[in-house]
Design a protein around this nucleic acid. Sequence first.
DNA 1: TAGATGACTAATA
DNA 2: CTATTAGCCATCT
Length: 110
Amino acid sequence: MEIKKRTNENNFFEQVYEVVKLIPCGKVTTYGEIAKFLSRPKCARQVGWALHNNQSPIVVPCHRVVFADGSLSPAFAFGGENKQRQLLACEGVTFNENKVNMDKHFYRFV
DNA sequence: TAGATGACTAATA
DNA sequence: CTATTAGCCATCT
């Protein structure tokens, strides 16, 4: 039941996984940044789709990927909104109400 | 091939 | 501040 079917080269997906794995502990990034890093600035949704397809939060710390405004992904994506927040908090990420302190923990790929 | 979907984002009201 | 609209584009049906 392999979901990745017509990914042409799967390269985009693989890149997404690699990049997400590169996010250091206690840092977060956005879908748009990942997409931009992969030369597909408009493909933020596909990044999210890739993570959904990945389905391996152990190998790929998808919890470190948030919305552009710092809000976390919908609860259904993680099986618990609190889960992602707790994971991040456990790594030292601070929160502003319901959103991540992007100014402090936003990680840009250089 | 065409239409619908979505773990996005930015702009607008 | 929140809610809605529109644009985006790979993937799905």
